[in-house]
Design a protein around this nucleic acid. Sequence first.
DNA 1: GTATATAGTATGGTTTTTAATACTATTGTG
DNA 2: CACAATAGTATTAAAAACCATACTATATAC
Lengths: 95, 95
Amino acid sequence: MPQIAKLIGGKWKLIVLQILIFHGTHRFNELRRKIEGITQAMLTNQLRALEEDGLISRKVYAEVPPRVEYSATQKAMDLNEMFEAMHRWWVTYEG
Amino acid sequence: MPQIAKLIGGKWKLIVLQILIFHGTHRFNELRRKIEGITQAMLTNQLRALEEDGLISRKVYAEVPPRVEYSATQKAMDLNEMFEAMHRWWVTYEG
DNA sequence: GTATATAGTATGGTTTTTAATACTATTGTG
DNA sequence: CACAATAGTATTAAAAACCATACTATATAC
């Protein structure tokens, strides 16, 4: 698993994935509000990258104002075990 | 677990940890040979960072030529579940 | 005396990430 | 008409990560 760091690495991807995996579908600005410190450009960026890697899916509604919803794909959902292990570890050592 | 990415992130840390956790203590140049593409400077770097975060320990032997051994600490060892989950996922989707 | 091996440090440069800011389109409301 | 809300894009700049290369010390082998 040499390149897993690319899928998951960086400052924001884990946070985005965690939200979408454990708390379901979110709109762009909902994510923005939940992830403090992230800029709009960065969020767009990370979402695009995650989409390219097949970890999230993007659904655009033809409404005004526009609505775009992001969800975790099955591929991302299957990361939940990893997240849970990570979380247990985190609680033990840094929580 | 917001900052876990810092402990684990980057291009090399996961690889270094995986080697030390699952294959035991290694000397500097043993690691260097196992991790293709890494430079000496980068390896030193990553090892220092991991040491600072308490994930690896460093033992220097007063010999010539010098010998320095790196091992995973218990804290790092406890990441094995995360690694295993990660590995299963990797095999499913990218293997 | 020369070469070799180990585990580094130092320096400079490139590439990638991240950030800040301004800008767009659309339509319903007052 | 002005304004607000959403989900972006574009541009520029700054910071961080990464890489290549050269250099060090030391004892032993030849």
